[in-house]
Structures are given as C-alpha cells and as structure tokens.
Simulated scan of single mutants.
Amino acid sequence: MNRVCCFGELLLRFSPVAGGEWIRQAAMPVFVGGAELNVATALSKWGVPVKYSTVLPENALTDDIVGYIIEKGIDPSGIVRFGQRIGTYYLPQGSDLKHAGVIYDRAHSGFSELTAGKVDWEAVLQGTGWLHVSAISPALSAEVAAACRELLAVASAKGITVSMDLNHRARLWQYGMDPTEVMPGLVEYCDVVMGNIWAANALLGIPVDEAIHAKGKPADYLAHALATSEAIQARFPRCTVVANTFRFDAPPSGLRYYTTLYTGGRQYVSPEFVTESVVDRVGSGDCFMAGLLYGLYNQHAPQAIVNFAAAAAFGKLQEIGDATGQSVADITGRVHTLTRVDSMDSVDSLDSV
C-alpha cells in the first residue's frame, strides 16, 4: 500500500496562559506538533495510510513521542535518530504563529543538523507514493534546505507525487539567503502547491497587488488567487494543483475564511465560513493541507476537495492543540450546515459537495 510520507521537524509546543498566570499555576500545557506531523495525524484519522519522517535524538523523551505517533496510527519508520535536542516553541494561548506571540527554541535541534548526504532517502521513501513537505524546513538553514532538495530529487526520480505547503515564517529565514533564492529550486519538484497570494510573493517572487487590501472585496481576492495560481503553474510546469487560503480577522475576536483550488484551467472556490470566536489558531492551515491531500488521494472532484479542506481548517479553529481530532463525518456535516455570510457569485453551491 502506497503511503503518504510527511517530512518535517517535530516540535513541542509550550502553551502558557498569558500574563504570567502559568507561573502562578506552576503549569504549562505541552502539545506534540509540527506542521507536517499535524498533516500526518489528520490523514491517519481520515483513513489515509501515512508515515512520518523527521530527526529526533536517541533518548527516552523521543521514545515517548514515537509511542504517541504509533498510537495515532502513523508509521514511524521514516524517523531518523541523531542529535541532542527536540525543537520547541512557546506560544501564549490564543496567539497566532504568524505574529509576535511565538518564541522559537529550536536552534541546535537534531533536525537542524540535517545536511545533504546524511540521510538515506531511499529508505525513508520506501513504500511511499506521495511526499509532503513544507517551506518551514528550508527556512532553518542552507544545510537543511540542501537536504530538502536532495529528498525532493530522490522522490522525483522515483515518480512520487510531491506536495508543498508554502508556510511563510519570516522569523525563521535568518541565514543570509532570501526565500526567493531557495524555494523555487524546491517547488520545481512539486505537483501540488498550497499557500496564499502573500506567501507566493515572499517565497517564490510571484507578483502581489500591494493595493489588494484597499480593494478588499472577495471578488478581488479571488481574481488575485486565480492570477497567482496561473503564474505558479506557468513557472513550475510540473505543478498541476494550486490552492490558496484567505483568513481575515472579524472583530472583536472572530474571523472569516474561504479558499480556492486551481486545477485543469479552472478555479474552484469554497464556501465562506465565519466564526465570532477562535479557540486555537495553530494547525488550521495544516488541517486545510491535510484536507486537500485527503481529497486528492481519494480522487474526489475538485469542488468537493476544496469544500472539505476549508471546512476541516475552519473546524480546527475550535480545537485546542496542534492537530485535529475531527472525523470525516464531522467535516462533511459542517460543509452543509455552517453559515455563509457573503453571496459571492464565484462560490459554488454547497449542494455540489
């Protein structure tokens, strides 16, 4: 059975209550995560055979984590052991990874010691028909980026489908190279690319309209998503699927969310979902990525794929922790019941799912 292999750094998230309450309580929740493991966890939950590949040290803490991964139904055979540390980060409860709330403590982790030639990628990819990676890994160092490119080249030579999440973590790109000098060389191996119009600009140099927020209408954002998708496919001919997400704050504490999928010369648009409050913003994009892979893996129709992926990501906003625990039934039910707040002409009916 061909598995989806998700490759990237496992991270422990420490999630303190803001304002120093974690000190007074002498407690701080810890979650096992990392973007690619979040994707793997969701896929396993939804019945897709999946393995996970990362680098972890040889110690008892790693043994506990591997046991956790196995309990989630994920094949851990892609995990390589070397180094001394597991990467961590601190994110106060309710904060967002893309903003100033995150404090990374991942320097000198085992994963950060990756270099080209250090891992037997043939062994890692054994039994794999799909490889999923993200832009977080090559943001760590030139050496890790070179290892990522080596992995993608091996996967490409083996005829493995490759997907890339264009996660843009500006605070990680600190080793003297602009993302646009690194990421195009990786995306050229990719069949599926997910991100948004701003990440495509920051990581790939795809033009972005600086006045897009001033226009501010859904139709303008959707037109931009189409142009960005077409530009990505023109530049990277191997890429046949491009997805874009749009997430906007809705004061005082809610948000609006919708997504697009471009394939076969047509753009498909999800319903627009709205919530007045958010429990945990971490992992929502990973959940969308997992939903996208779930639909593509099972060869669902494009409209059904983007609707399911958007509903999965939206549902994750109400879950504490890095990875989703939603079932397929939870998500498909939400597609039919959540409120739409904008009658965008370009959004297909929910009845098309």
Rank of each mutant, 00 (worst) to 15 (best):
E21L: 14
V279P: 05
L293R: 01
R334A: 12
S77I: 05
G185T: 07
S53M: 12
T337S: 11
Y52F: 15
E319F: 04
V341M: 12
G205V: 08
V48C: 12
S134Q: 03
F236K: 10
Q267V: 11
A290T: 05
K217W: 07
P16I: 06
G176H: 09
G283H: 00
A312W: 03
L172I: 12
Q233M: 14
V124F: 04
R281Y: 12
D280I: 03
N59F: 10
V154I: 10
I65Q: 00
A153I: 05
G291V: 01
V66G: 13
C190T: 04
F82L: 04
T263G: 04
V182L: 02
D345P: 08
N167G: 12
S77T: 13
P92I: 05
V66T: 14
M183C: 09
E113Q: 13
E319T: 05
A142Y: 06
N244R: 08
H168W: 15
T240W: 13
A301N: 05
K215S: 09
L125P: 00
S346H: 11
A123K: 14
P16Y: 13
G321P: 02
M28I: 09
I23F: 12
A323K: 02
A311C: 09
L261Y: 03
A135I: 07
D75P: 07
V192K: 01
R85A: 08
G216F: 03
Q93D: 10
A153E: 15
V328G: 06
A18T: 10
G315I: 02
L261S: 02
P207N: 12
G19D: 08
E188N: 10
V269T: 06
S253V: 09
R281S: 14
I320F: 10
A202T: 03
G321N: 03
G110T: 02
A26M: 08
P49Q: 09
P76Y: 15
S349W: 11
V278T: 11
Y268S: 04
F31E: 11
S44Y: 04
A135K: 00
L255M: 13
V274H: 14
F308C: 01
R149N: 11
I86D: 00
T332N: 09
E58A: 13
